[in-house]
Every structure is written in structure tokens, then in C-alpha cells.
Design a protein around this nucleic acid. Structure first.
Lengths: 205, 205, 205, 205
DNA sequence: CACTAAACGAGACGGTACGTCGAGTCTTGGA
DNA sequence: TCCAAGACTCGACGTACCGTCTCGTTTAGTG
């Protein structure tokens, strides 16, 4: 589900068809270059040269370099960070948070950070990132929380959006600022601590 | 405590002294321009023109534009997000979180976001940001948490670093990704929700 | 026969072809600007602005500003200082010297002086100037001298290279040093005086 | 007889006197640097650094870098290219031309060429050069020519200025354009050829 | 012997132009 | 109609020197 897909949608095919080979080698070249340079310092000219492709071809199909990167990396991420069946909502969330720490702590996280950074000066990039990467995940999480509220695991007055931010915020915070690691310890402790804030009976200090 | 300060440290003064006027007008011009453009799109040439200053003068004192921005903003930010006296640790934290939401939700937050973004392709920038802005605040927070643990408000086994991330993570997350607003509602609910995870007796799972 | 010509030699054409319009307006702008400023103070940035052209386009086709100037001026100079048919070698030379004094005494001369000046710190420029401007003229002069020697007008032992320097030296000397004018009087007297040194029987020492 | 001399003339001495040491080390540094770079590429900043001197001190005493170079090189040249006693005017001139070819063919010539080049974009430099280096020599030559005319060696209608240009023009021409060497052969042949144009009885072709 | 006044080194200042890089657009010929 | 190649205009980069301007520090002579 790429930018390119949306843009070439609905067209009556006529003339020479899009070259699948060009598309692949652009995405490959991008992935290869991102091993070495930041998204910021990734020049579209270099992608074109590395891919053996005209710049025009890139500009024809992607609006900016972040869009290429999103195409290159985030189609396959989908399943890696999806929620999976679990006996209770708490456990479903805990499991997913653990997977999320692992994913964001790895190379995918680095890419995501680059894209968010790029997004600070380009709202389209940020919006596209939210759409492609975040919103679906948050929708799934919302579903789990609803279930958890319904079956009495969580407070009935839970603000779900805030709950999601409470759980994932620390992960993204550490990713972007780098003051603390995204390691196994976090994977262990974060769900325990954050979920405790959501549970049925809490305390009034 | 600025970049510039460190660089001109310990020198026996010789030759024409640094112009305080130039320094001020550079920082002012930077602040003014950042209202309109992102740090990414902020050209040093424009700062120089706006400040009525030679480019050389800028390059002489700051290694990159992020350093200018850090100098320009974080002196005044200091006091705005400091912890203040409060009867209990919980209240001290709640008050500070509210102030933080307000600050990060405003123009200062936008600047901070720009710096963190810049930091994704420039580790020095990120490190400098952590040093001058974050770590001091986190140290102060740590102090409060220690007090809160000592007087029985908080769990005795609290992981303070994680606790800080739990409380502030959502704020930075929203700042950087922009999926939800940093508004009054957040200022109200975030401290209540997050602090509940830290309290002495909290759960019946 | 321009710098540019040499560089684009032998290439199979591919991609967008060079813009003739850009080339022309660069050379025109250069000519226009050189009326007002010296080659030394002629900024490539100003040529670009005046020509409505990117700096890159200039740097793509010319290695330095002297090369632009040589391209701009010496095509048209060609015919103005050529030798023309005349009954005797002496007359052919006299006529050409007169034309030369006029040409070098005018704006063309000023340009030539600028190029020679530039050549003092850049051997390539000087070599290129000799090639495209001087050597051809000297070759033509050599031909005339040979004829003159053959038909008995000139000494049979004439050192042709030196003879050429004797005739043209004073012109260039005045051009570069400016201690005396390149005026009508010179046009009248120089050929009479210098040629007298070359004639068959000339001296009673 | 330097620029500096003229400028500080007539002053009642008061305050710290000019440092002879600074003056020397500036001229020395200039001479040293000119071994490696052209006058064009000789930066006053570098002279100052090399001489261990403030830029101000240079600007206080010399109006431009050519003036420094003239001070550095041409005080001593005087005698080397002066006319000397000889039995006839012809011989006096021949001898002086030979010395001139040697001098201009050497490092002094290279410097002179640099200054003339600089002079093409700075009339003051050229005027100063003529004053300091040329005019005195030409005045001396004029004297010799007058003698030669008076005693019947030269044509009575000789245009002396033109005669001087005829004799020295080839030397400067070769110096500036470099199409032919300033070698022993020139020293031999040039005076013989050029002087023959000046002699009493010539030919009408 | 202190005082005055200019020269000194150092180096920061506002500028201008440099030559390079990359952005995004345009224009060829060939597939 | 797409594609590669590569030219195009444009704008900013970081650097080098320019000539000017403070500074604090000599270094004479004068009072």
C-alpha cells in the first residue's frame, strides 16, 4: 500500500506501462543507502544514480524521499507488530508491547525516527507516516482496550487514546531522544508499570 | 551555559573582544525566523541577513544551526519548566507535568521538536540537547521521586528512570508525532493516570 | 574553436542537449559587464545573474572566467586583424600593423590586456590565449615575411620571430604598461620605423 | 624611496616610532611568499601571519599589495639596469639592452609581470610601477638618444619615445605573453636589429 | 619618572565571491 | 507513454580574504 499506488490509481492504462524493475531498484537502492546515511543526508540524486534510474522516474511516482522510505520498509512491518490472540486483554497488550520494544529498538525504529524527524519540517510526511504506520496499530489497540473494559479488566472510565500514549509514549520517547536504551529490561518492566495504571481498582492517594 | 561559552573558555583575552551585540541579534533573529520556518529550512544565510551580521561571525561561534537554536531558547526555558515547592511529591509532579504540557504544547515545544529532529542525523546535537535541557530536569524529577519513595507516597521498588519516561513519554510522543493534541485535557488527565501507576498500593489484578 | 568545444568533443549525444540560448546569453552578459569592470573584478555570480542563468551552467562549460572571455571576444576579432592582400610584403605588413594599432587601442585591446594579466597567475589561460589569438596571426605574418625575403624586400638572414616581436612588441608594451598612447601617430610611425630595420640594405654603421 | 616614506613625510615625530623590524619582516615575508604564489593569489592576511604582524600595520603603511612588492623588490634594481658609460651611444644602448634582457628574464621580471598584471585592474598600481621602475630608466635612455642624435649616430628626426618602445617593447612583450624566451640569443640579436632602425642613413625601399 | 601619543599584535567585525551540492523541472532520443 | 540521461534555474552551503574596527600592550619622546 504505497504512495505510488494511490497516485496511479484509477488511471486507464495507456502508453508504456510502469517499469516494475525501476520501482524495485529504487526501493532497493534506498534501503542500501540508508545503511550508511541518514534520511536527512540521503540525496534523491544519489538514489537515482545508485538505482541506475532517471530522477524524473522517482519524482513521477513519489512525492518526497520519506515516501520512498516508507514504501521500502513499512509494507512488511505490518505483521511484525500486529496484536495476536491472547487469553486476556492485559496479556495481549503486554505481548504486543514487548514486540514493539524489540521492533522499535532495531533498525526499523531507526528508520521510523528518521521519518518522524523529516516530518518536523514537512507535515505531509508526518501525516503519511501516521496513516501508514501508526493509525492501524492504534485502531487494533483500541479494539483490545474496548474488550478489556467490557470484561472488567480495565477501568470503565479509561481514556483509550491517552492509555495508548501512556503505554507507547515511553518507547517513542526513548527512540527519539536516546537518553535510555530500548532493551530487554524495558520490555519487561514497561508493560507491568504502565498497565497497572489502567486497571479496575486503583488507589486514591 | 551555551556552546559559545564552552568554546571561549579559559582564553586570555587578546584582540578585539567578542561583540555581545552581535551575539544577541543573532539569537534574536534566529528566534524570530523560527516562528515562520522549520529548523531544517532555516538558512544560516537568512539568520545573518536578518541579524545584520556576517556569516563568518556565526560560524565563528556556533558549530551548526541547532547549536544556535539551543542557545537562543533554552536560557529562557529554564525557569518555565522547573519544579516548584509543593506539600507532597505527587503534587509537585502533577504541577510540573501541567507546566510541561503547556510549555511543550507551545512555540517552545515546536523548537524542541525541531532540535530533536535535527538530532536524528547529528548525534552531537541530540547529546547537547539532552545535556542542557533534559538531564537537569530529569535530575530534579529524580529528587522528587526519591522523596516520594522515602515518605511512602510511591512504591518502594519504583524504577525512577522508567517512571519519568512513563510520565513525560506521552507528552514528547504527541509533540513529535502529532496524532493527538497537547491540550488542557491532557494536562488534566495525564498526571492523574500516570501517577496512579506509581503509588504505594495500587492494584488488584 | 572554444573551450567548450573541446570538452564536449566526441560524445554520443544523450540527455537534454546543451542550450544554445544559455551559451549566447552568458557570452553576451560577459561582454556587457566587461565594459564596466576588469576581468579581475568580474564576478561569475554577476555574469550568471546578468545572463539569467544558473552558476552551475557556467561552471559546467567553462573552467574559469578567462575562458569565457576568450570565447566571448575572439571569434569576432578574427577577421579584424587578419592580413590582407597587398602589392608588396612591406605594404601588407604596414597595413596590418595599422589595423592592429587600432584594434589593440580599442576595447578589444583592453580585453586582451585583462586576459594576459589573468594569465600571469594562470598559465593555462596564457597558453590558451596564445593558441587561439596569437599563434595564428604570427603564422600569417611569418608567411608574409617569407615572401618578402624571397622577393628581395627583406634581408635574407632575417630572424622572423624576432622581426615579429620588433613590430608588435611596442604595441603590446604600450597596451600593458600604458606609458604612451596607442594612437594615430603610433599607427603612422611605428611601421615606418620598425620595417626600416628589416630591409635589404639598410645601414651604414 | 618607498610609499611609506612619502606618506609619513613631514610629520612631527610623536608617539611610538615606526617599527623598522615590522617593516623588514613584512617585506621579507612578502618576498618569501612570492616564491610560491602569484601576486594575484598573495593574500595580505598571509603576509601578516607569515610576518608575525597585525594586518593593521600593513594597511597603515602600504595602500595595496603591489606597493609592498615594489618596496620589496625594486629599491635595489636601480643600479642593475642603469646605463653605464660607453664610447658611443649605440654601444651604451646595446649594453643596457643586454643587461635588461638578463634582468627581465630572471625573477625580477616575473615580479614585474605580476605587478603589471595587477595594474590592469588597478590604475594606481600601474602608475606607481611606471613611476618607480620605468620612468627613470626612460629618462636616462632619452639622454643617451639625445647624445646619439647630436653626434650624428642616429637619425636627426628620431622619435625618441617610439625608439625606446621599439627597443624595449619586444622584451616586455615576451615577458608578458611568453611565446618566446628571454634568452641569450635575444640579448645578442635584439639590439643589433632594433638599433639598425635608428641609424643615420637608412634605405627607402 | 610619570605622562602622552602613536604604533603594535591580535583577532572579531560586516561583507563579497568563491566553487560545490542538491533540489525539482525540462528536453532530448530510444523502447 | 515511459524511461535514461543529463541539461536547466535556483538557493544555500561553508570557506577565504577583504578592509575596518576595537582591544590591551609596548615604546619612544616631553614635561
Amino acid at each position: 500500500m504505497s504512495f505510488a499506488y494511490f497516485r496511479s490509481d484509477e488511471k486507464r492504462p495507456s502508453g508504456r506501462p510502469r517499469s516494475e524493475l525501476a520501482r524495485k531498484s529504487i526501493l532497493d537502492a534506498t534501503a542500501r543507502l540508508l545503511q550508511r546515511v541518514s534520511l536527512r543526508n540521503l540525496a534523491i540524486e544519489n538514489i537515482a544514480r545508485e538505482a541506475g534510474v532517471g530522477k524524473t522516474t522517482i519524482y513521477r511516482w513519489w512525492p518526497n524521499k520519506a515516501a520512498i522510505v516508507i514504501d521500502a520498509f513499512f509494507e512488511e512491518v505490518e505483521q511484525r507488530t500486529a496484536f495476536e490472540r491472547a487469553p486476556t486483554a492485559v496479556e495481549a497488550i503486554r505481548d504486543q508491547v514487548v514486540r514493539m520494544v524489540h521492533t522499535i529498538g532495531g533498525p526499523i525504529g531507526r528508520i521510523a525516527a528518521q521519518i518522524i524527524a523529516e516530518g518536523q519540517s514537512n507535515p505531509d510526511v508526518l501525516a503519511h507516516f501516521r496513516e501508514v504506520f501508526l493509525l492501524q496499530r492504534r485502531a487494533a489497540a483500541t479494539e483490545i482496550f474496548r474488550t478489556g473494559i467490557a470484561n472488567g479488566e480495565f477501568r470503565h472510565d479509561l481514556d483509550i487514546e491517552l492509555a495508548i500514549d501512556l503505554i507507547y509514549g515511553p518507547i517513542w520517547y526513548r527512540l527519539m531522544v536516546g537518553h535510555q536504551p530500548l532493551d530487554e529490561e524495558l520490555a519487561n518492566r514497561l508493560p507491568r508499570l504502565s498497565i497497572s495504571a489502567l486497571l479496575q481498582v486503583s488507589v486514591t492517594a
